[in-house]
């Protein structure tokens, strides 16, 4: 019972997150993905995304 109440509260508080918080969240999501593709200093990630980094003119090598 009590866990139900807690999860319901969690859901309702999630649904009332302000639009600003939600759009900033989406912006951070986009930035994290771009970091992974363009900047992540792991050799395997660099090699996989190599041609993308060059083509988008991200600093590479």
């Amino acid at each position: 019972m009590s866990s139900n109440t807690i999860s319901n509260q969690a859901i309702s508080s999630k649904a009332t997150l302000s639009p600003l918080v939600q759009t900033v969240g989406a912006l951070v999501f986009g930035a994290v993905i771009l970091f992974a593709v363009g900047f992540m200093p792991v050799d395997a990630a660099h090699n996989a995304a190599h041609d993308t980094r060059h083509s988008l003119a991200f600093p590479c090598h």
């Binding site: 986009g30 993905i33 771009l34 992974a36 593709v37 995304a49 993308t52 083509s55 988008l56």
Partner: peptide, 8 residues
């Protein structure tokens, strides 16, 4: 990688 960049 291009699709991921597009998503970002």
């Amino acid at each position: 990688s291009n699709v991921l960049a597009g998503i970002g």
